[in-house]
């Protein structure tokens, strides 16, 4: 079957804007998008720049946008893409600067991974009760939730909607890596806490909007967003409860426990608290909402059966170890 690959081309050294080029190609059964790109490079246009190595979804080099979604070209079937989208459009990963064509500059990606200190800390000497760095991890003694399966391909970072508008955000890959060390039994409690103190700062765990894009696109089922949620929970459990994000979670849970339902009239006060500047930021919208009949009664009675809701919360509190 003959079909068209539409490829985004861009050489920032000689061009102002990217453009698309079409390549006609004879494709056979079982062909991957990477197979197609290599053939185009070898047979039609040697100047096409792309990055790849293992061709087996192990090295993570060939992540790119295929029909608008972040994928490894080496494990994306041409036939399935065609069935799903009716076309093959290939572009470089988003949220990273293009070096040429499909090759992006991963420097900011690596900088952020380095920023979370992706190795075990050496603080065990000061805490002799901690297991040593050379201990063997026994099955069941740790739970990394598959974050150690990450191949650092950058798909999640390219798909991240928060990072798209806030370039400083650590992003899903680095935070998933951080979660791996916060859950490592060889890491001391003090060092875990120190990690969480860093991670809850600006550009950290509370900047995630939980859009699930990283979970959807990850080729290795790492579920970075869920790792971020585990980090948030760990931060709360470590008593790091004063940030806006932390107050959102604790305030939300308190309102649901008390009333059974979220009350948007009370929620802003839980988060903003008595910070006057921030209160003044929320207030004008509150007044507009009030005039439009969009502010619920802050003193609305709880839902019927509220006793059951409250007993769910207290049962969870009595439970010996949270899962």
């Amino acid at each position: 079957m003959r079909l068209t690959f539409t490829i985004q081309r861009f050489n920032p050294e000689t061009e102002f804007h990217p453009h698309e080029e079409d390549y006609r190609l004879e494709v056979g059964r079982g062909m991957t998008v990477l197979d197609g790109l290599i053939r185009i490079k070898n047979e039609q246009d040697g100047a096409l720049a792309l990055r790849y190595s293992c061709r087996s979804a192990i090295c993570g080099s060939c992540a790119m946008q295929i029909n608008g979604a972040e994928k490894l070209a080496c494990r994306t079937s041409v036939r399935k893409e065609l069935e799903r989208h009716g076309r093959i459009v290939v572009a470089p990963l988003k949220n990273l600067p293009v070096i040429k064509d499909l090759v992006v500059d991963m420097s900011s990606f690596w900088d952020k991974v380095r920023e979370v200190t992706p190795w075990l800390s050496a603080s065990r000497k000061t805490e002799p009760e901690q297991p040593s760095g050379q201990m063997t991890l026994l099955p069941g003694s740790y739970q990394f939730h598959n974050v150690d399966a990450c191949i650092l391909c950058g798909a999640c970072v390219a798909a991240c909607t928060s990072l798209e508008v806030s370039k400083g955000f650590l992003g899903p890959a680095a935070l998933a890596k951080a979660a791996r060390f916060v859950s490592d039994p060889r890491e001391s409690a003090a060092s875990k806490r120190a990690r969480l103190v860093e991670l809850e700062k600006e550009n950290g765990i509370w900047d995630c909007v939980r859009c699930n894009f990283c979970v959807e696109v990850c080729p290795k089922d790492v579920k970075p967003m869920e790792a971020i949620i585990r980090l948030r929970r760990a931060a709360l459990e470590a008593g790091l409860t004063s940030s806006g994000g932390a107050r959102h979670v604790t305030g939300f849970a308190e309102i649901v426990q008390r009333e059974g339902r979220l009350n948007e009239a009370v929620m802003p006060l839980k988060i903003v608290g008595f910070n006057l500047t921030r209160l003044l930021r929320v207030l004008p919208l509150g007044i507009k909402m009030l005039l439009k009949g969009k502010v619920p009664n802050p003193l609305a009675p709880p839902i019927s059966g509220i006793a059951q809701v409250r007993s769910i919360f207290s049962a969870a509190r009595r439970r010996p170890t949270p899962s």
Binding site: R233, A253, G260, I303, A316
Partner: peptide, 18 residues
């Protein structure tokens, strides 16, 4: 009418079992 909030992904951040 007696149903509670679904948790909106936020309650789970505090406690997934709740």
């Amino acid at each position: 009418t007696a149903a509670s909030c679904c948790g909106a992904g936020v309650v789970a951040e505090a406690d997934p079992d709740v």
